[in-house]
Every structure is written in structure tokens, then in C-alpha cells.
């Protein structure tokens, strides 16, 4: 696929008949990525939504080779599969992991760091829905500031989660990884292109894709793509790449859309007051000042 777009994607389905909730952003990311990588992708999914909805014997929903890993072991199992298949004489395959935010930034970060440090030839995709949705919306290391989860309740004393998201993209980049990227299912063509690009690069590839969860975010199922666009448009997420030791910004909104509008559409942010929103905007502006200074734009 020389110039992949959503329209040109394969009609073949590799993740089909699963039980994901209506409007699931994570399943959209898995579906699109596997269409890019094709039949010879070997997917590894840890405990989490995608394995819970896709791997219930005898209802098994991947038409490519797929396996559930331990929660902490997405990257280490990818390493083993890549090494094992290579040892058995295979070369035409892609070992790809799909782990959620908790599986990546919390329990799986050690194995991921190990794989990147060894430069194992794998693609690791973090489908980030910003909380432990599979277990009922608990805070993860990638839950944003202010979000209400079942373990960061919003009351009059504490307004939800008090800590910002871990910066997984730059953590991956800090290893000197051959390729890392951020993406959003709201900008699906950008995501598809990044998966395609990653599949052509030798060594470890990390793609961090925002994948809204209607249930956890408190939005309607048909708002997933829209809200995944809006998080980029309002500047709370950004589309970027890290390659050859350099950061590149792929998409620069002319003017940011309203952060408040983005937040207030979602049940998880409904409780935020003006001070909270100011804090979020200030942190966005600080981040973008950093991006302007350190990221090339093309």
C-alpha cells in the first residue's frame, strides 16, 4: 500500500465478530491496523478489553494468528514470538502488540522498555482509552488530569484524577527507538500511515493511539471518532513522530478548538470547575511551547 487511506484499506476483516461495546475506539484501532498489516500479522493482546471481547473459546475473533499474553507481558511475548518464528525460518510476518494504557504505561512498561532497549523487531501499539476500562473505569498512568474514574471519584474535595498522563511517546523515544508515533482514531488516515510506515522499519516501533471509550468517557457510541478528532483539535493530544533521533509534528491546528467544549461533552469531565479547566489549558500551552521548540513541523 503505497499511500494508504481509509478508503483504500483492505476489505478483509481480521478482527470480526467480537463483543466490543458499540463505538469502541480500541477495536477500531485494532481493526484498522490489522487491515494494514494483513494476514501475516501475529497479534499479541494482553489481558484487557480487546482480549476479553475477542478471545472467548470457542468464539475466537481474529482471522490472523493471535495470542493473549499476560497483562505485563505484551512486549516480552512479542519478543519471543519474533525470535521463535525467525528461528523456524520465517521472515514474512509482523509481530504486533495491542495493549491498552494500563497494560502499556503501568504494568507492561518494564517489558516494553526491555524490548525497545534490545531493539526487537516488533510493533507495539498502545490503544489508549485513558483508564482501566475492562475492569470498570479505574485510573491508569495515562488517565488525564481531572478525569473522574471509579478510583478517582469527583467530589467536592477532590475533582477526579490529580496527576497528568505519563508521556509514553517521549519515554519510548528516550530509548532511542527507531520509530515512535502518536495518533488518534479520529485521524484514522494518519494512524494507518504510521502503522504502514512502522511495518517497513527494522527494530522496535511504538505507536500510541488515542482510542476513546464511550462507556468510560461518558459519550455516545457515535461520538467516538468526533471526540478523538476534537482531542487533537483542542491541543490536548498531538500527532507526531520520532525517527532518526528527531521529533516531528504532523498536524498543527491553526487555532485550537475549545478545551472547555471538549471536556464538557464527556461525563468524566463534567464536574470540572473553571480553575480546573484553566489548569488544563495552561498545561496544554506549556506542552505546545515545548513542541514548538523541540519538534520539527512538516
Amino acid at each position: 500500500m503505497a499511500n494508504p487511506t481509509a478508503e483504500k484499506l483492505s476489505r478483509d476483516e481480521y478482527f470480526y465478530g467480537h463483543k466490543a461495546c458499540a463505538g469502541c475506539g480500541g477495536s477500531l484501532a485494532v481493526r484498522a491496523a490489522l487491515k494494514v498489516l494483513g494476514q501475516n500479522a501475529v497479534s499479541v493482546l494482553p489481558a484487557g478489553c480487546m482480549s476479553a471481547v475477542g478471545f472467548n473459546f470457542p468464539q475466537l475473533c481474529f482471522s490472523n494468528n493471535s495470542i493473549i499474553s499476560t497483562f505485563a507481558g505484551t512486549a516480552s511475548m512479542l519478543t519471543g514470538i519474533e525470535a521463535g518464528l525467525r528461528a523456524k525460518g520465517y521472515s514474512d510476518f509482523t509481530a504486533v502488540g495491542f495493549a491498552g494504557d494500563g497494560g502499556t504505561a503501568d504494568i507492561g512498561i518494564q517489558a516494553l522498555s526491555g524490548a525497545i532497549a534490545r531493539n526487537d523487531n516488533i510493533i507495539y501499539i498502545c490503544d489508549d482509552n485513558e483508564a482501566y476500562m475492562n475492569t470498570g473505569i479505574q485510573k491508569s498512568g495515562l488517565t488525564p488530569f481531572g478525569a473522574r474514574t471509579t478510583t478517582t471519584p469527583a467530589g467536592s474535595n477532590i475533582h477526579g484524577n490529580l496527576r497528568p498522563k505519563k508521556n509514553m511517546f517521549e519515554i519510548a523515544a528516550a530509548h532511542g527507538i527507531p520509530y515512535a508515533a502518536t495518533a488518534s482514531v479520529g485521524y484514522i488516515t494518519d494512524f494507518i500511515k504510521k502503522v504502514e510506515k512502522a511495518s517497513k522499519i527494522q527494530g522496535t516501533k511504538y505507536i500510541h493511539v488515542i482510542a476513546p471509550c464511550p462507556t468510560g468517557w461518558g459519550i455516545q457510541p457515535d461520538e467516538t471518532v468526533e471526540i478523538a478528532k476534537e482531542v487533537v483539535d483542542c491541543g490536548l493530544w498531538y500527532l507526531a513522530e520520532y525517527e532518526n533521533g528527531e521529533f516531528t509534528l504532523n498536524h498543527k491546528p491553526k487555532d485550537f478548538s475549545s478545551v472547555e467544549a471538549y471536556l464538557k461533552k464527556q461525563g468524566r469531565f463534567k464536574h470540572l470547575d473553571l480553575d480546573d479547566i484553566k489548569t488544563i489549558i495552561a498545561s496544554r500551552d506549556k506542552k505546545w511551547a515545548y513542541i514548538e521548540k523541540n519538534f520539527a513541523y512538516r
Binding site: 499479541v44 495470542i67 499474553s69 499476560t70 505485563a72 507481558g73 512486549a75 516480552s76 511475548m77 512479542l78 519478543t79 519471543g80 514470538i81 519474533e82 525470535a83 521463535g84 518464528l85 528461528a87 523456524k88 518494564q110 517489558a111 522498555s113 526491555g114 532497549a117 534490545r118
Partner: peptide, 21 residues
């Protein structure tokens, strides 16, 4: 493979075994 923990040591071995190795 120089894994970074015992958890990864066995997780990696499972992956390799799943590949038929």
C-alpha cells in the same frame, strides 16, 4: 535474549514456544 526480568524471561519463552520453537 537478554530479558529485563524473570517474568519476561518466561513470557518470552512462551512466545517462542507458541511460534513452534
Amino acid at each position: 535474549i537478554h530479558v529485563e526480568s524473570e517474568h519476561s524471561a518466561l513470557s518470552c519463552a512462551i512466545g517462542a514456544s507458541a511460534a513452534g520453537a
